[in-house]
Design a protein around this nucleic acid. Structure first.
Length: 859
RNA sequence: GGGCGGUUAGCUCAGCGGUAGAGCACUCGCCUUACAAGCGAGGGGUCACUGGUUCGAACCCAGUACCGCCCA
């Protein structure tokens, strides 16, 4: 085997792209449904076709990649399936904007040509994110890449629509829906974002004289469409007015006063205006009282009601209506600014307009019930479990889902209307009767994304993939999308797959934030571009930084400093392996003869492997990263490599054995690191082992035979001694490299066999014939006498000893207090008491020793 | 208004009954032949507040304050 010369610094850019290409070419990421292995499958939450890789994706993908890489190493038939969704509104907006530059609208092209144009855009500039995923190292199965508008996936959409339709779970109705006057389409409830905005609350006097009633509203312009005033039936103030009519100002129309339980007598005057065509609550009141619905706006939010306000935008009309009312003396009170919740289009932030229109809905009742039950009865586990409650709150109180969109880009609703008003739902292999016209609308994008876990595997065909990889093992996504998407996939998956939920586990992570825990936003200027980080710090460092902060369900704070720290970590591993290779480390199995240092690091390796395995089961990526970081840096690099240097320098069989232990430990460490930092781990592992790829190497199994508490205790006491003497050296101003003579008294202690190592680590020479130590240190049972080769800094030494003494005395006080407490002695468990006794004895000893040392110091 | 989560070192977070931890930042000394993207040493915390349970509370319970998120 040749040992390639590694540079002193890890250069990610030289390694990443070629490695990735090699992995793909070797077919490591392609799943084989025909293998006999147990399946492990993940579907990638499909990014938006208009999207590009942002730091939230980077986190989500890093987690999925870590999970699937580890699963592959553990021998599972692993599928991580990539793809995109067609993002109806977003994509249509992008292409319409492009057209606008040419002075065209989609109507100029016509529907067919427009859709053709969108496809063209998709081929050319859509899906940039897929290329970016390779930079991050995503080990996805590219042979199974899917798109929600693919023919097969579209077939799945049509199939399930037809089934739901035939089962009576899809219906068409005239309802108040959320309407975006800019996107000109209906939105579902969850596509509306609510925020506390400043508005106004205006109290208006309707009617006159005895028939006078005051209503308050934040949307004065809608009064033009009022068809009633409502009061609570139990409200005595208005009891006598129920059934009467009052004159609606500005219009001269007479409208009734109705009694409705849903009116809150405590809000405002207790009387509310009722605008059934422009408010969901009012719509319900209108239904209950048979009130007419009077639409006063068009689809762009422009007033259509006859009169002086016609042609005004809704926001221009508001002050105009108020001014007109004021001129008539109708305004009783005005509160401005008035904070209230306002809905905005999640896509374009335009204020949503409740609009009465004919739309398609999914009756979610039975589907949502089943989606909730699947989590309740454990068919699907939500992790972390605290978030399951949010899921239940949502699915147990879900409103019917408005699925029609007034767009051209998307799956067209497969319903055709006949000349006599017939309605026919057409399945995938059916054709509509002659002369029928198809519904012009398309389906909500989430309707097709809800099929993702099975449409991508071939459903409705009974494919091999579907049989093998459904239900998927785990879904990894942000908690923000739990009800947006997860709940919908649960509903459709359970419905289409006979009660088999789409995932065994839903693992939720948080949002990525900046180093102060602040949300990233363009206007705040704290947005991290993962591609920029990949370029500057490497893909591994970018991934490691994200994973290191990722605790289940909680947000991740990151900063450039931390990315640099992760890069340093990669470099540390790099150099450790480089050192090992320079010294002939080999991964050819462990030798029979092991030194205490060898046994210690192997024992630690076993523990760390176990810790990592356990943490993976609970998606505790922060714990996994920390365990490996600490093991690699603080134990392997800081101690084992230093001890190995000494063992190798000793020559002979010890040296040869050490090379094998070193090789074994690094081999295992790189395997454990591979899911997190695949590029650097791969490069080093190939250099170390000469084998083809770590991607398909076996995951380490913790070796119980390596547990060695004795060796751990031995090395720990060595560490304590070394650190203590280094502290002395540092306090005394001895340079790290400066060699000084010392006498060690180790016989009879656990460190008797370690004199050579201790001297090497501490740069202590053998004492000469005529040895006159200037300082004497005692650590545990060991005495170290040192000739500091000059006058000792008495002040520094006194300070050091006094500090230690203070610590020991404090400990003693605390501990003797406990031992003197009868209750403690009577009730505390025996192991705690004996521990405290041991601490007391230790403190006693330390105090005596330190006092003696202080007394011995020259004045 | 309803619900959930949080408050531990300068920052971000672990710890969740028995001696307060990590990373980064900070101080001091070092280019000690794997690594200055490094090495060695060090400083830094009435664990938000108030009560309770307990021999013992950062941890369990109750309440208060503040922060964040979701829903209405």
């Amino acid at each position: 085997m040749t040992t390639p010369e590694l540079p002193t610094q890890y250069a990610p850019a030289d390694v990443e792209a070629p490695s990735y290409e090699r992995w793909v070419a070797a077919g490591y990421f392609a799943a084989d449904p025909g293998s006999g292995r147990e399946p492990y499958s993940i579907v990638l939450p499909p990014p938006n076709v208009t999207g590009s890789l942002h730091v939230g994706h980077a986190l989500d993908h890093s987690i999925q990649d870590a999970l699937s890489r580890r699963a592959r190493m553990r021998g599972f038939e692993t599928l991580w399936l990539p793809g995109m969704d067609h993002a109806g509104i977003a994509t249509q907006n992008v292409v319409e904007r492009e057209l606008a530059k040419e002075g065209l609208s989609r109507h100029d092209l016509g529907r067919e040509a427009f859709v053709e144009r969108v496809w063209q855009w998709k081929e050319e500039s859509g899906g940039r994110i897929l290329g970016q995923m390779t930079k991050l190292g995503d080990g996805v199965d590219w042979s199974r890449e899917r798109f929600t508008m693919d023919e097969r996936l579209s077939r799945a959409v049509q199939t399930i629509f037809k089934r739901l339709f035939d089962d009576g779970l899809i219906y068409r109705a005239n309802r108040i829906i959320n309407w975006c006057p800019r996107c000109l389409t209906a939105l579902s409830d969850i596509e509306v974002e609510h925020s506390e905005d400043e508005g106004e609350l205006v109290s208006i006097r309707y009617g006159s004289g005895e028939n006078e009633i005051i209503v308050a509203t934040t949307r004065a312009e809608t009064m033009l469409g009022d068809t009633a005033v409502a009061v609570n039936p139990s409200d005595e103030r208005y009891a006598h007015m129920i059934g009467r009519e009052v004159e609606l100002p500005l219009t001269g129309r007479m409208i009734p006063i109705v009694a409705d339980d849903h009116v809150d007598p405590a809000f405002g005057t207790g009387a509310v205006k009722v605008t059934p065509a422009h408010d969901p609550n009012d719509f319900e009141i209108g239904r209950r009282h048979n009130l007419p619905s009077l639409a006063i706006m068009d689809e762009r939010g422009v007033i259509t009601a006859h009169g002086p306000f016609q042609g005004l935008d809704r926001f221009e009309a508001r002050p105009a209506v108020v001014a007109a009312l004021r001129a008539e003396g109708r305004i009783v009170a005005e509160k401005r600014p008035y904070l209230h919740a306002v809905g905005h289009c999640s896509r374009c932030k335009t204020v949503v307009e409740p609009r009465l229109s004919l739309q398609w809905f999914v009756n979610v009742g039975p589907l949502a019930k089943e989606a909730g039950d699947a989590v309740r009865d454990g068919r699907t586990r939500v992790h972390p479990p605290e978030l399951a409650k949010r899921y239940f709150d949502w699915v147990d109180d879900m409103h019917d889902w408005c699925i029609s969109r007034q767009l051209w880009w998307g799956h067209r609703i497969p319903v055709w209307y006949g000349p006599e008003g017939e309605v026919v739902c057409v399945g995938p292999d059916e054709t509509a009767p002659e002369g029928y016209v198809q519904d012009p609308d398309v389906l909500d994008t989430w309707f097709s994304s809800a099929l993702w876990p099975f449409s991508t595997l071939g459903w409705p065909e009974q494919t091999e993939d579907l049989a093998r990889f459904y239900p998927t093992t785990v879904l990894v996504t942000g908690y923000d999308i739990l009800f947006f998407w997860v709940a919908r996939m649960m509903m459709f998956g359970l419905y289409a797959m006979d009660g088999e939920p789409p995932f065994r586990t839903v693992a939720l992570h948080g949002m990525v934030r900046d180093q102060f825990g602040k949300k990233m936003s363009k206007s705040f200027g704290n947005v991290v571009d993962p591609l920029d980080w990949i370029e500057r710090f490497g893909a591994d460092a970018t991934r490691f930084t994200l994973l290191r902060g990722a605790n289940p369900g909680s947000d991740v704070a990151i900063s450039e400093d931390w990315a640099a720290g992760s890069r340093n970590f990669c470099n540390k591993i790099w150099n450790a392996t480089r050192f090992a290779l320079m010294n002939g480390a080999v991964s050819t199995g462990l030798p029979d003869e092991l030194t205490p240092a060898d046994r210690w690091i192997l024992s630690r390796l076993r523990t760390v492997t176990e810790t990592v395995d356990t943490a993976f089961e609970d998606f505790e990526f922060a714990k996994i990263s920390d365990a490996l970081y600490h093991f690699a840096w603080d134990e392997v690099c800081d101690w084992y490599l230093e001890l190995a240097k000494i063992q190798i320098a000793a020559g002979g069989p010890t040296a040869e054995n050490t090379k094998r232990v070193l090789g074994h430990v690094l081999d295992a460490l790189l395997r454990l690191l591979h899911p997190l930092v695949p590029f650097v781990a791969e490069e080093l592992w190939r250099a170390l082992t000469g084998q083809e790829s770590l991607v398909v190497a076996a995951w380490p199994v913790p070796d119980a035979a390596h547990a060695d508490p004795g060796a751990e205790a031995e090395i720990e006491s060595l560490q304590t001694l070394v650190t203590e003497v280094r502290r002395f050296r540092s306090d005394q101003g001895l340079k790290p490299g400066q060699r000084v003579a010392a006498r060690l008294s180790l016989s009879g202690t656990a460190l008797a066999a370690h004199e050579g190592s201790i001297r090497a680590l501490l740069r202590l020479e053998e004492e000469p014939e005529s040895f006159t130590p200037t300082a004497r240190l005692a650590v545990g049972g060991v005495t170290v006498e040192i000739d500091t080769a000059g006058a000792i800094d008495v002040a520094a030494e006194r300070k050091r000893l006094e500090k230690d003494l203070a610590v020991a005395r404090k400990e003693q006080a605390q501990v003797t207090g406990k031992l003197g407490n009868e209750q403690f002695m009577a009730k505390a468990p025996e192991d705690v008491v004996s521990k405290v006794r041991a601490r007391a004895a230790q403190a006693e000893q330390d105090i005596a020793r330190l006092e003696a040392q202080l007394a011995a110091l020259p004045a």
